[in-house]
Design a protein around this nucleic acid. Structure first.
Lengths: 149, 149
DNA sequence: TCTTAATTGCAACTTAGTTGCAAACACAGA
DNA sequence: TCTGTGTTTGCAACTAAGTTGCAATTAAGA
């Protein structure tokens, strides 16, 4: 499990141990991807990760592959935040599955915020309204405070 | 305003009058796009519209342009349903702006359902939790009843 | 019917992401 | 610490989705 709490606090050693725990080799590319995701406050697009790591000499195909592998290993969730771009987010320590909190995305500036600390409740307006399935992920779109003013 | 209710019931004449109302020329391509969206029960991806109309000889660039123009004219909404693909939905008669209801998308089969009749409530777990902005659109993802069983 | 601006089809282009493969590397075992 | 082996990487070429410029065509008002 990933030690420590706040984003941007993941050390080289803890990144390595995270990889070893899931049986993946510790390579520079994977560690860079993990640290890049960790340093970001919000979920990152694959393109964003590529941009941030290409300048250090990593190849885009390596980064795409790393993201996919980390996702398959359960270290990273792939979010679909509704702007026609996938995003990746490093899973927090205690989390063992999908990202549990809702996400908010500003339709003006594109900023994505994790709404940890919020629960979502869906209320049918009539008695007979029935949810179409089992809810697993919620995305709220709208105008963030900065853009709304 | 678009007359008549159920999907798949939009006649050639009503498609034409819808276009004239917003000051657009009535062309075969636009009518085909409107009828294609109308015939679908769920929002369509641009690729889906292209596939369904290419076989009738329409060019993909024409279809993309038509979708964009119809969206700008307010006849069609562009939805971002979180599967990294944009979708287009013909606006119902009474609707004059954005799609107001939440949408549900099944992560297994990709089915999209309009959750008309549902309200969404966001509850902060603590007193000081503050929503990051003004909510305008909600997407719920999960497993639909068919796939969950 | 004629005129003209709007629209279309084509082809070339852009961008995001994927794939095959040889070279480089991590790491378990000696 | 060194070595062998299977994993991972970088490269380059490729695919798919969507966009753009432009000449030819067409809708619709005069």
């Amino acid at each position: 499990m990933i030690k420590g709490g706040k984003p941007g606090r993941l050390t080289l050693e803890s990144a390595k141990s995270v990889l070893r725990e899931v049986g993946m080799r510790c390579t520079a590319a994977r560690i860079a991807v993990i640290q890049s995701l960790d340093a970001a406050r919000a979920p990152m697009t694959p393109g964003g990760v590529v941009d941030s790591l290409c300048e250090y000499g990593f190849d885009k195909s390596t980064i795409y592959r790393s993201l996919t592998e980390l996702n398959e290993a359960g270290l990273v969730v792939r979010l679909d935040l509704g702007d026609a771009v996938r995003r990746f987010e490093l899973l927090p320590p205690e989390n063992d599955g999908a990202s549990e909190h809702p996400h908010f995305m500003c339709v003006d500036c594109g900023k994505v915020v994790c709404m940890s600390g919020f629960d979502v409740e869906l209320k049918g307006r009539s008695r007979k309204a029935r949810a179409p399935g089992i809810m697993s992920e919620v995305l709220v779109r709208g105008h963030c405070h900065d853009c709304a003013t």
